[in-house]
Design a protein around this nucleic acid. Structure first.
Lengths: 128, 128
DNA sequence: GTCGAATTTGACTTTTACGTAAATGTCGTG
DNA sequence: CACGACATTTACGTAAAAGTCAAATTCGAC
């Protein structure tokens, strides 16, 4: 495991712009260390970026992604805080389950659409 | 099955604004009929709206949703078109499968996060 | 050390997906 | 027919999430 990645290495690996990475830093989503003024991304930053992009692909906003990321940080020490956090985790899970239902429904509708296309092809006497 | 829904009926049912529905019409996503200048939404429009909102929750843009919606319209008659459409369906399915992977990974990380919270609670001697 | 490529900051711009306000139209009820 | 409750159109506004550009630094290869 490498110790550091440069900004361009990450932009190439994940196909995002440097502007985007700096934007995420401004927003407090990642915290690369500095050598001089240059950003150095540790494996942890890289992993965080992965999680951020996954969140984006799922349609979460930056703020929602921030919420999810904070969940992964240090679990709080106090009992009340812990219980509250478990509750927040459950909320996020419910959102994801809704997305899963949406996703399965859309997939199944696409299946139907394809079937009807294939049927039409058969009607037209095309050997599939 | 009702023949028509008014715009406000749909806004209430799906918790969207009238502006949003008019915007979707401007974008060509839905096509309610008119009585005078007033929009009348048929069950088909309502169903389309459902699909649109599902797409939104999955993080698809208006343009991507438009693409998906067009898939559900009349399958084309010509063989070449049909094959092309089947290909486009497969592309969309691949996007959805990627989203599903993202979703499962995020869910499983949330599971881990919750477990570590529960563990901490047990350490603190809290009877769950 | 120096030269070019990469990086940084900062400011301004763009796109998407609506929000909001103003002026006007329509319809059912008393 | 007048009133209130919705609807419509037009136009401008806005927040989020970057893109773009310029000018100044900084790095790394020679």
């Amino acid at each position: 495991m490498r110790e550091f990645y440069t900004i361009t290495e990450l932009t190439r690996e994940f196909d995002v712009s440097t502007r985007t990475l700096r934007f995420y830093e401004d927003e407090g989503l990642i915290n690369p260390v500095r050598r001089g003024r240059t950003r150095l991304f540790r494996p942890a930053d890289r992993h965080l970026l992965k999680q951020i992009l996954r969140g984006k692909r799922l349609g979460f906003s930056i703020n929602e992604i921030r919420e999810i990321i904070q969940i992964y940080r240090e679990p709080p020490g106090v009992v009340g805080q812990l219980k509250l956090m478990i509750q927040r985790i459950e909320e996020k899970r419910e959102e994801l389950r809704q997305k899963r239902r949406d996703l399965e429904e859309t997939l199944s509708e696409l299946d139907q659409a394809e079937e009807s296309c294939v049927e039409r092809l058969v009607e037209l006497g095309v050997t599939t």
